[in-house]
Design a protein around this nucleic acid. Structure first.
Length: 500
RNA sequence: GGCGGCGUAGCCAAGUGGCUAAGGCAGCGGUCUGCAAAACCGUUAUUCACCGGUUCAAAUCCGGUCGCCGCCUCCA
């Protein structure tokens, strides 16, 4: 396909322009900007190395099915990943599985399964859920249980540097030694209400604000073989050291982007920072991106509030992953998202409008060119890319698409697009969809009987049954469809009705 | 008590100093249709929780008030 202007116009938008060339620095407002929770402002994104981005997301704990709060986090991580990829970065994206902690151990105990078997089934289910949501696979999915040696080494190192201490067979991080504590969350340890959400009697820490690195294995855990031999006795790791260990193990001492939900800022991320930075003296991550909470009727979605929905619940109710993806993506990631079924129904209607458009476009027989359509397309692409680059402003980006659809719908109904224009639009939509993964852009869906006839003919051709193939072709012609064979397979077009 | 967020049309949701306050859903009107449905088009906020201030200019900045929500050391 030859583009009349070489196609630059359609390929030059910054979002799709590939890794930046330092000589051709894009204008400030066109650069990728993220709101960094660490600095509490929007910043131009500059990775440590120009071509590569290291990206870590706190993964799920393998003891329950993914609920919508989890789904939002992972869809936002997917969005970040896809935007980076569309920018041409080589993205090293790791997401952990927490398969060794209080919850998984308790869960396995309850279901009377060996821990590994128990977590394996949830990990499998989680991957199926992510698949349903159209989430791209990460570069790697490290499991906590497979990195315990490294965690023990880190704990030992922290003790050596006197950031940690042993007490009754458990290892605790001494927060008083880490002066920068609280820089991410803004908590002032002298003013918080200690013991508000945790039963301090379970611990033997020197100070209630200290947190566990390695926990002495209980009798039950010992019986189950859930323990690791160390110089301090039999232990198993705590949650915070797991993430800190895995992220730095795969991505280096300082990673470009660390993402997760806002509710994990304190204490989890704060503690991860304390561990990693006490160890290396370097920042754990340069950019921290946090997605806001998902609420149901104004309340956090929890079991206790009896308002918890898993993805599977919604799928069982007849919604599909694509509809849930739309819903979770359509609200800006830093705004609280109020979930409701009404909203899910609206997501379905929105998608229907998009599908209606792309289907019409795909099935449109080429006609005369329309003078304005290229301008509409460029405008949409610029608005979409600009919105994405500006801290992933999805609402704005969606607005650009719907605007375009509104403008082009009348043109489509008049058949005023030529082959080139149709192709440009589809190419742009393909690029946009590499980020959204919401559009249906496969070939024109045909009536099932026509589709079946085309397949019949292909079958006959494969068997060199030319007589049968020709009969089917005639049959298709009678129904108004002409078949043109190409190296890539048959292409159909509607036979124009002769003038009366 | 400490830290943080939110409040824009009937609903959802962009916009964060100056062009007509995006877009979607619902509603209403229309095109199409034998009638309908679907689809498509048009229309829907003199005003941005409230009060006061700064400014030539505020939904946007500042101060205060009200309402809602989240986190406060292993629920993730």
């Amino acid at each position: 396909m030859i583009l009349p202007d070489g196609g630059e116009k359609y390929l030059s938008t910054t979002l799709f322009s590939g890794a930046q060339d330092d000589n051709i620095e894009a204008k400030q407002e066109e650069q990728l900007r993220f709101y960094n929770s660490l600095t509490k402002r929007k910043q131009v994104f500059r990775p440590i190395s120009p071509q590569k981005v290291t990206f870590y997301a706190c993964g799920p704990t393998a003891h329950e099915h993914a609920n919508l709060s989890h789904c939002r986090r992972f869809i936002v991580a997917d969005l970040i990943n896809r935007v980076m990829l569309s920018k041409g970065f080589n993205v090293q994206f790791f997401m952990n599985f927490t398969d060794l902690d209080d919850n998984t151990i308790r869960g396995a105990e309850k279901s009377r399964q060996p821990l590994a078997e128990f977590t394996e089934s949830y990990i499998r289910e989680f991957k199926a859920d992510m698949d349903a949501l159209g989430v791209k696979e990460a570069t790697g999915f490290p499991r906590a249980s497979e990195h315990v040696d490294a965690m023990i080494e880190i704990a030992a190192e922290l003790i050596k540097k006197s950031y940690a201490y042993e007490k009754h067979g458990s290892i605790y991080f001494d927060i008083s030694k880490f002066k920068r504590y609280g820089k991410l969350s803004g908590v002032d340890l002298s003013k918080i209400q200690i013991g508000k959400t945790v039963d301090l009697d379970d611990y033997e820490k020197d100070s209630p604000v200290d947190f566990t690195l390695l926990k002495r294995s209980t009798l039950a855990e010992l019986k189950e073989g859930i323990f690791y031999k160390t110089e301090w006795g039999n232990v198993r790791p705590g949650w915070h050291i797991e993430c800190a260990t895995m992220s730095t193990h795969y991505l280096g001492e300082t990673i470009d982007i660390h993402t997760s939900g806002r509710d994990l800022i304190f204490p989890h991320h704060e503690n991860e920072i304390a561990i990693a930075e006490a160890l290396t003296g370097k920042p754990l991550a340069n950019y921290w991106l946090h997605s806001e909470q998902l609420l149901v009727e104004g309340k956090k979605m929890t079991l206790e509030n009896k308002n918890l929905f898993t993805l599977k619940d919604l799928l069982n109710r007849g919604y599909n992953g694509r509809e849930v993806r739309f819903l979770l993506l359509a609200t800006h990631y830093r705004k609280p998202l109020h979930f409701s079924f009404k909203k899910l129904d609206e997501a379905r209607k929105n998608l229907k409008r998009l599908d209606e458009f792309t289907q019409k476009l795909l099935c449109l027989p080429p006609g005369l060119p329309h003078p304005k359509v290229a301008a509409y397309l460029t405008d949409m692409e610029e608005r979409f890319c600009g919105a994405m680059a500006n801290d992933l402003n999805m609402s704005r980006a969606m607005g650009a698409i719907f605007d375009f659809i509104k403008k082009v719908n009348p043109i489509l109904s008049q058949g005023q697009l030529d082959l080139e224009q149709k192709k440009y639009i589809l190419e742009t939509f393909e690029k946009i969809n590499s980020i959204l993964n919401l559009l249906k852009l496969k070939e024109c869906p045909l009536a099932p009987e026509i589709d079946r006839l085309i397949k019949d003919r292909e079958e006959a051709r494969r068997n060199k049954d030319w007589a049968r193939a020709d009969t089917v072709r005639d049959e298709l012609a009678q129904k108004g469809f002409e078949i043109v064979d190409t190296p890539k397979g048959p292409v159909w077009k509607e036979i124009e009705k002769t003038e009366q």
